[in-house]
Simulated assay, not measured.
Amino acid sequence: MNKTSTESQRALLNELTQAQRERLSYIDFKLYFLGELRRADVVDRFGIGPAAATRDIAQYKEIAPENLILDNVDKIYRLTDCFVPLFEHSPRRVLTSLSHGFGEVVGDALKSMVRCEFPTELSQPKMSVLAPLTRAIYRGRAVKLIYTSVESGRIEREIVPIALVNIGIRWHVRAFDRRRKEFRDFVITRMENPTVLENCSVGENEKVENDLQWNRIIELELVPHPNHPRPEMVEMDYAMSDGVLRVKVRAANVGYMLRMSMVDCSPDHSLEGLEFALCLRDPLALYGANNARLAPGYRDPRPDVQRGPVKAW
């Protein structure tokens, strides 16, 4: 597809309503990742009539005529050999849709579009705990709750949550801790009876704009581990450019990300084992990140900093 065609398609899409673009994106998704589309797919997904679904498919074909062809025998639209996606599909959203559905059903009756298997998630938050937290984040409110920690045991706290964070093995909340007067991470499964404080004002120092660790973005260069027997395989796994994977991550989350991905952050890249496929080219990039000690092998260059495990982990 040439540049002129792409610009023409973009102009036509911009003339559509948001609802129309969503339906055309679904048509594009079904063709691209499943190879076929039935009119009933659009009807069932969006709750519209057959005539409206036919118009949507006709609209899609007008914009991208070479993307689909009607199989008159089975009455199915099929992907063509010259298909070019009309929309940019996020890998994360695509994998979520393929594994959990594209919103066709509600509740726990989610069905995968293709056979998928997931490792068992051992830690999941209760919805009765999660819902007040998300309301507080969305509306900029504080929350009172009971929290159990390694340091303090089970006590009542007031926090101002600013974001949810998934670190792979569990979810936590980034929040201002009114007891400690600082931003910290709180594990959702350790919370009890959260209550949104509707009539309690939030101070400027408690807002996300003043969380230095959250707002600091660290640029990392990850490279194949020098002891890996097949560095070219690592480059393929991570779609590296010139043998380097460049990522940007918040300082508040960098230690979690490096630990979850098993990135060797030791000064001399000395950690052993095939699980360490990646290493951090310059460990000094983590300087000043509060949870850098979570990163495998990381040693803080400051002589006065105590070394050891981070209790919150």
Rank of each mutant, 00 (worst) to 15 (best):
D185K: 05
A251T: 08
M191Q: 01
R180C: 12
E204N: 11
A289T: 00
I63F: 07
D108Q: 03
S8K: 12
M191A: 00
P303V: 14
T17K: 14
L280R: 00
F102Y: 07
D304V: 14
D28F: 06
L37E: 02
A52T: 14
Q213P: 02
R246A: 08
N253E: 14
R141F: 12
A292L: 04
R157W: 07
E36T: 11
G288E: 10
H172M: 00
A312T: 08
G101K: 01
P194N: 11
N290Q: 14
R55G: 11
K61G: 05
G140H: 01
I27D: 09
F176V: 05
I146D: 09
L278T: 01
D282T: 08
V94G: 00
V173L: 04
V143E: 09
C116T: 15
V160G: 00
A289N: 01
F46H: 02
N290P: 11
R21W: 05
T189A: 03
D28P: 13
N72F: 08
M1T: 07
P303L: 13
P283Y: 09
P50T: 13
P231N: 06
C82P: 04
L31S: 08
V150N: 07
R93E: 12
K207D: 01
A295D: 00
Q306M: 13
M260K: 14
S5E: 14
G107H: 05
G107M: 13
D268W: 04
V187D: 00
A252T: 04
W214I: 00
P224W: 09
A142M: 06
E158T: 14
D41Y: 05
N210L: 13
T189I: 12
E275H: 10
R259C: 07
C279W: 10
Q18I: 10
L274F: 11
P65C: 06
A289V: 06
E121Q: 09
D108R: 12
L197P: 06
S25V: 00
P50R: 15
G168T: 07
P194I: 08
A175W: 00
I217R: 12
N193I: 06
Y138L: 08
N290M: 06
F183G: 07
S5K: 15
L145M: 11
F33D: 03
V94E: 01
R230W: 02
T195K: 03
V105S: 10
E15C: 05
L278D: 00
S241F: 11
S123L: 04
R38Y: 15
V254P: 11
E235H: 03
V202W: 06
E7K: 09
R10D: 09
N72R: 15
L133C: 03
D211A: 03
D41A: 07
K61S: 15
A175S: 05
V244P: 07
C265N: 12
N205W: 01
N291A: 09
S266G: 00
G288C: 11
Q124S: 11
K311Q: 08
T80G: 03
G153I: 00
D185I: 10
L95F: 09
L271K: 01
A295V: 08
G49A: 06
T134L: 10
D71P: 12
S261T: 07
L68A: 15
I155A: 08
L274T: 10
R10G: 02
I167E: 02
L294S: 06
C200P: 01
T148H: 03
L286N: 11
